[in-house]
Amino acid sequence: MVKINEFAVESWMDAYENHCKYNIAETCCASISVDQLRDLSDNKTREVIDASKVLTYGAIRGSDELRNNLARLYSAKTATPLSPDNILTTPGAIQANYLTTYALVGQGDHVICHYPTYQSLYEVPKQMGADVDLWQASPENAWVPIIDDLKTLIKPNTKLIILNNPNNPTGAVLNKSFLQQVVDIASEKNIIILSDEVYRPIFHSISPLDKDFPPSLLSMGYNNVIVTGSMSKAYSLAGIRIGWIASRNPELIETIAAARHYTTISVSGLDEQVAAFALHSSTVHSLLARNIQLAKTNVALLEKFVLKNDDECEWVKPVAGTTAFIKFHREGKPVDSVDFCKKLHEKTGVLFTPGNCFGEEWKGYVRVGFVNHTEIIEPGLAEATKFVRKNLDDVELAG
C-alpha cells in the first residue's frame, strides 16, 4: 500500500473554510458566478454554455475551443506559437501536477522541489517511489532559493525539478534571470522542469515592463519544460474544476496523455465550455484586470495590517499571486501557529492557515489569502488586529 501522509493544508480547509465569517485563508481570486462571468465579457449576448450540446465524453484531450484559447495565451509575446495539440486538460491543476508526476517519475528517480510550497508537489513524487530533496527558500533571501544550492542537489538520477512560480504560500516570484539559470542547469543534464504556474498572471507588485519580469517557463526556449495551470486561482472559477498541462515537447505530452487514459478519460464538457468562455479574448482581459486590481487593493490593506502589528508580526511582502506568509511572535518568540489560528477563528470568525501546513520548520507563520472580496478582507483584518492586541498573550508559543 502506498504511504500517504496527511495533506495538511487541505485537511485544514476541509475542517474550517465553510465555518468561518471572514475567509482570509482562501487562495482563489474572489470567485464569480456564470452570470458575473458573462457580465465581464465584451459580448453580453454570447451564451456561456450551449445547452443544446449532447453530453458525451466530448474531446478526450480537451475541447478545441479551450485548448485554442490556452495556446493563444501561451503564444503571446513569443516567437514560436504553442500548438493546441501540446495542451491536455485536467480536473484542476492538482490533477495536472499529479498526472505529470504519475507519468514521469518512479522508483530510482530523484526529484528536486522548490520549497516551501503546496504539499502535493513533493509528496506525490514520494508516493511514486522517488527520492525527493527540498530546495529550500528563506525569508532572508525574499523567499527565493539559492542557485548554488540547486547545483549541489543535482544527482546522476535527477529526473525532475519542480518549481512553483508565483509561489504558494509566500507570494514570491522567480524572475526571468533566475529562471534562465535554472534552465541552464537542467539543460546540461536534460532534466525535466515542471513549473506549477497556477497563480500566473496575478502580478500585483511587479510591472510587466520590468526587464526581469518572470515569463511563463514555457517561453524560455528549453524543450523539456512542462507547465500546469488552472481556472481556480487567477481566473476565479474554482468550481468548474478545470486545469491543464502544457509543454513544447510532444514526447512529454504523449507520455502524459497515455497515462491520463487511466485516470481521466475526459474532462467535464460543461466545465470546459465555461473555461473556454472565460479565456476567450472578449472576456479574459476584463477578468484578469478585475482580479489584479482586487489583489492590488487588498495587498495594500494587508500591508497596513502588518504595519499596525509590526511588534507582533513580520513578513516579506508578496510580489504576485494571492497569498502571503506572515510570522507572528510574542516577545520575539514564535507563536504556535495552529493554536493562533484556532483561537483567532474561535474569537473572531477570521480564518488564516497555520504555517506548519507547509512544514514544521515554519514556526509562527500563517498563510493569508488576501484576494477574496475586499468586503471580507478589510473587516476580517480589523478583527484580526483586535485579536492580536487583546488575545495574543493567550496563544501558546511554538515548541
Rank of each mutant, 00 (worst) to 15 (best):
Y98C: 09
A289T: 10
I240H: 15
A96R: 11
G229E: 14
L279P: 00
A295D: 12
D336C: 14
L88P: 00
Y235W: 13
E361Q: 14
R46L: 05
I161R: 10
I192E: 13
E303K: 09
C313F: 06
Y57E: 12
A398N: 03
K151N: 02
D184Q: 04
Y235S: 03
S195K: 04
H329M: 10
P156I: 13
P91G: 08
V105P: 04
N291M: 07
P214M: 05
V267W: 07
W143E: 08
N309V: 07
P214I: 03
L252A: 05
K304R: 11
K308A: 15
A103F: 09
D42P: 00
D210K: 10
A276V: 04
L70W: 12
T78V: 10
S337D: 15
H261P: 00
T348C: 07
S177M: 10
K126E: 12
V284A: 06
D394E: 15
A172N: 06
D336R: 13
N5R: 11
V105R: 14
K342I: 06
V227F: 09
N165K: 12
D393E: 15
L270H: 02
P169V: 06
S205Q: 04
E360S: 10
H329Q: 15
S195M: 11
A382P: 00
L160F: 10
V2Q: 11
Q180A: 11
L288G: 03
V225K: 01
I162W: 09
S177E: 13
N291E: 01
V183S: 07
D196V: 11
Y22A: 13
A51F: 08
L66G: 02
D50M: 03
A30Y: 13
I112A: 05
A8P: 01
A142P: 00
L344F: 01
V227P: 02
F7E: 09
S247A: 14
K342H: 13
L288S: 08
A137V: 08
D311F: 01
S195G: 06
K317N: 04
F358Y: 15
V48K: 02
H114A: 07
T255D: 04
E346Y: 13
M231C: 02
I265A: 12
D131A: 05
S83F: 11
T158D: 03
N167F: 05
S75Q: 04
Y199A: 12
A384C: 10
I192K: 07
P208A: 09
A246E: 03
I256M: 02
P166S: 08
P334K: 14
H110L: 02
V227K: 13
K233G: 00
